[in-house]
Amino acid sequence: MQKTYYDPKDLKDFGKISEWDQELGEKFFEYYGKVFEEGALTAREKSLIALAVSHTVQCAYCIDAYTSDGLKRGLEREEMMEAVHVAAAIKSGATLVHGVQMMKKYDKLSM
């Protein structure tokens, strides 16, 4: 058994998930490929969104992949960092907004 949960090399083997369930695996990759095609959003914009979401889901594989993808597309570090801050702001905002629920509950229960 390997000593760490993450191995960067596993990313390259992502395609192998189809080996255990070909139909669902292939459907996933087809969907994934389609999502990232140029559409109403440019492929570049989609790459930035993916980078931001990678940070909120804290997926080391995705961060690795979409940092490289951004470099290939000529994204600048300022753009990438701003995207990460957008993700972080939403994530912290999502935490903090629940404070309203806490406040209401606290007030309701208190005399």
Binding site: A43, R44, S68, D69, L71, K72, R73, G74
Partner: peptide
């Protein structure tokens, strides 16, 4: 840097 170029026509 140490990465491959992206899609030529997009660039």
């Amino acid at each position: 840097g140490a990465f491959l170029p992206g899609n030529q026509s997009e660039l």
